[in-house]
Design a protein around this nucleic acid. Structure first.
Lengths: 139, 139
DNA sequence: TGGCAACTTGAGTAAGATACTAAAGATTAT
DNA sequence: ATAATCTTTAGTATCTTACTCAAGTTGCCA
């Protein structure tokens, strides 16, 4: 199992927008790209996916750009991962009949654990952490 | 994040050997391949990796094959994943300086959660599950 | 209303990973 | 000896990743 660069870029882009929230002035692609050191032409595609999944909004034309579609506390890392790659943790073997049920259950437990944590971390948490107020991660 | 077919094959192969344990007669590659519906020529490479990581043992020549190197309760899914892919959950962004610390911490939480579960599931658990004695997964 | 600045869309692509196949070599029981 | 087995290395078709690029659309503003 391996996390992709793309999902990292997506999280960093949403973080940039979350840190900018609730400022109404939209952030331009190039601003996000430069601030987060992400190739602008690649970021374009990621932002489109985040938008089509309702996580961010865009404004076209001059003075255009992106803002969050909802508050940072309503967006989780899990939401971002599902937006850019369909699932937090893809497990093709779960739909393969040749994989025994007991092995599937083991895979599913790992998947549930990862999703559970990803769905727990909001971008409010991440912004607080960025500002030196670490969250109570291990309750 | 996506789990590979290879890691699934590896778990299924170890399960086959665990179900055979503690029988001393080794299982042949072709036996495991046929029972688990894994391409034999691919399984060869996986078994070598499992062996070089000390999870299984081999005997060459006639009447050769594979057996577990230790008891099923001493082998976890995490051990198998580390053997065939180096880590339970690879996260290249954790070593990239461009990734902000607060995002890294979020990734690390997901990684720790997945590893924690993977290291909890032993092949004794899986064999018990296969034999209709489901484990207490959610304590 | 013309033009520029921004997002949008779709096509293309180099490099690497994945999931195999194949073959020659080494070892051991009989 | 020889057959059966593991071992090792090489090769490869397909897919995915992580991009680049260019033409199109929209909206603000002078």
């Amino acid at each position: 199992m391996k996390a992709s660069v793309k999902s990292d870029y997506a999280c960093r882009a949403v973080e940039a927008l979350a840190l900018h929230h609730p400022n109404v002035r939209p952030l331009r692609i190039d601003d996000i790209a430069q601030r987060e050191a992400i190739p602008a032409n690649y970021l374009v595609q990621i932002l489109i996916e985040l938008k089509s999944n309702g996580l961010i909004q865009s404004r076209r034309g001059k003075a255009g750009g992106y803002v969050l579609a909802k508050s940072p506390k309503e967006i989780t890392v899990g939401d971002v991962l599902r937006a850019v790659q369909g699932d937090v943790l893809e497990m093709p073997m779960l739909t393969e009949s040749r994989c025994p049920d007991e092995i599937k259950r083991a895979w599913r437990r790992i998947k549930v654990a990862a999703e559970g944590v990803a769905d727990t971390i909001t971008f409010e948490d991440i912004c607080a952490d960025a500002n030196g107020r670490p969250q109570m991660y291990y309750i």
